[in-house]
Design a protein around this nucleic acid. Sequence first.
DNA 1: AGTTGTGTTGAAGA
DNA 2: ATCTTCAACACAAC
Length: 300
Amino acid sequence: MPELPEVETTVRFLRKKVRNRAFIDVWTDFAKMLQIRQGSTGQVKKGNFEDFRKQLKNKKIQKIWRRGKNIILELSCDKTLLIHQKLTGHLLVGYWIMDNGYWKPKSRGFLGEKVNTYIHLLFTMDNGLMLGLSDLRKFAKVELWDTEKLKESKAILSLGPEPLAKDFTFEKFKEYLKNKKGKIKQVLMNQEVIAGIGNIYSDEILWEAKVNPCKEIKRLSDKEIKKIYDAMRKILEKAIKVQGESISDYRTPTGERGGFDKFRKVYRREGEKCSRCQAVIKKTKIGGRSAHFCPKCQTL
DNA sequence: AGTTGTGTTGAAGA
DNA sequence: ATCTTCAACACAAC
């Protein structure tokens, strides 16, 4: 699942490969994932794929950045593509050829692996390179915005701070947490509080900080908040360094697995021994989502 | 073979 | 307002 480190990995790769390239064409077999946003509120324009295709044609990618789990491609003519990969979507870069209804990678390699074959959207760039979106569950969204409208949209403005931003200090983190209520895991995953953390990294961060995911915010000591803050930065930075996790569907844009699985301590490790204290990792539900933790070193 | 779990986000329901 | 549940969708594992 692409969370902050996976999205960052993708964005860094895209900068190297498609910055300053222009779109020649776009193909999809699932037009529902594409939307044209317009007007002051960014309403969804009723339209069809041909509109989208026409508007994208010959637009040049000028700037590529990330906000939370969103990939943002700023284009020429004051347009911007906003891509959210949701659960199983991941962008891939390479060459494909249509082979009776399916896009087949032009050469052997990682792009041929099953997880990378659910291509439902494919852009062709002006140098022939292609940008594909493989998305098994088809939840991913690609929206075309007016650049200025996007910047003042709820989609961007409602997001909390970037956890790795230089000016996001411990004091600020504490302030952001203090007036929230609920369990720490839920709050960490709330994109309006902090942007980019999902189920995997919230579990990993809390294990690292030795804080139980069910602990209520108001019962956290300053010391615990500091440990969560430090763990958050440490884990996210580490994950970016190794190009994210690939326990499920995420792959880097070359179709390769990220390296974080080696460092994954609790997520989907129910029944295994805690690498710190040998107690058995437990799994529970918090707000309908799975939460993994060590009952011994993450006491309530 | 039918049921359940998967996890992000926004919308609908309470 | 604020909380919880569910739908979007496809597949693996049970």
